[in-house]
Design a protein around this nucleic acid. Structure first.
Lengths: 186, 186
DNA sequence: TTGGACATGTAACAAGTTACATGATTGT
DNA sequence: ACAATCATGTAACTTGTTACATGTCCAA
């Protein structure tokens, strides 16, 4: 019923940038904040309806002649207040991230060294792709200039993604090297 | 009902190390693999029952005189096979980790700089605690020697936690510095 | 003219957490 | 004697995903 503490704020945050449709929000969240957040349609639409009922957002139904129907949502004053209130609150360190690669490597004894190395190579590749993607997003942000305020925080957050991606790549390299070393001496 | 693809393998993995009770598994998973995995009792017990029904684990009920009742589970041959089968499969990059700090920082425009800095300081502190904790775990693993095979993979995985913790600390420092710089010049 | 992106939404399911109930044992 | 930890389990809830249904508009 009362859906989703977290999704709620991800949506309000998006709308604090500019008005969007449900479709836009899902896309934007996945593309721009994809390194640390995602939403599915199955979440966005119901929560958006709830936010509208609570008057935290308003809806400008764009049903002009011939136009494809599109509901453009924008944040209200109380929505902004509610967002700020939540943003100020200390971050709740909720669930541990579950990383399947690490789980598999941890129990690597039950696997061949080559299988472990392959898992790590795959992760390295993925991390490299992420890094490239994150750099692209940073470039986009710098090019199209949004408000200085917005882009500063976006770049700061992306910087975190760079650090994370690079750490992951470095770790994979080290782990692969160690595993390869063990193969030769045995 | 048919509970949990992932929990299932976390449990089988634990039991591939040595026999444990449900209580042990929950604790072990949280303590030793805590940097990338966790389980709650509400998951462990039902899944364990399912695994028993599927004969992937067997149970040695320790109801000896006076003893506290304790069900000691161990992995069966088919359990080991099922674990290996899963471990070999490519890692599925499932859900994006949702990081509330990054979400808050991303929408930092709606917040004061001090609030942002405080969030980052808190994260830095947490990351430092994690790093200390992970180093302790590594020390434990080296001291009590489990099989070389086990401890090698455990240390390899922990190495990943170090990289991650250090990257997080470095990022927080950089972000805090940038935000402080902006405060002074404005 | 057909496939892909735009657009909104729902229903069924999966996964996992929280909180509780219950009780034994151990250390201080 | 009291608290902490050991130990097993269940029920209600929350959160979120997947898959589907429905239809529009645009470009190759």
């Amino acid at each position: 019923m009362a859906k989703a503490p977290r999704t709620k704020y991800a949506i309000l945050g998006s709308l604090s940038v500019y008005p969007m449709s449900g479709y836009d929000i899902k896309k934007w969240v996945g593309e721009v904040t994809g390194s640390f957040w995602a939403e599915s349609s199955g979440q966005v639409y119901p929560v958006l309806a709830q936010l509208l009922a609570d008057k935290l957002v308003k809806c400008d139904e764009n049903s002009a002649k011939g136009k494809r129907s599109r509901k453009l949502y924008s944040i209200t004053n109380s929505g902004s207040k509610e967002l700020s209130r939540w943003l100020k609150q200390p971050v709740i360190e909720h669930a541990v991230y579950r990383d399947e690669l690490r789980l598999k490597l941890f129990y690597g004894k039950n696997l061949s060294k080559d299988d472990c190395i392959n898992h790590l190579k795959q992760r390295r590749e993925d991390a490299e792709k992420h890094l490239i993607r994150h750099r692209e997003i940073a470039r986009h942000i710098k090019e199209q200039h949004h408000s200085q305020q917005d882009s500063m925080y976006w770049l700061l957050t992306l910087e975190g993604a760079f650090y994370h991606d690079e750490a992951e790549i470095a770790w994979c390299d080290k782990a692969i090297k160690i595993l390869k070393g063990l193969k030769k001496t045995k």
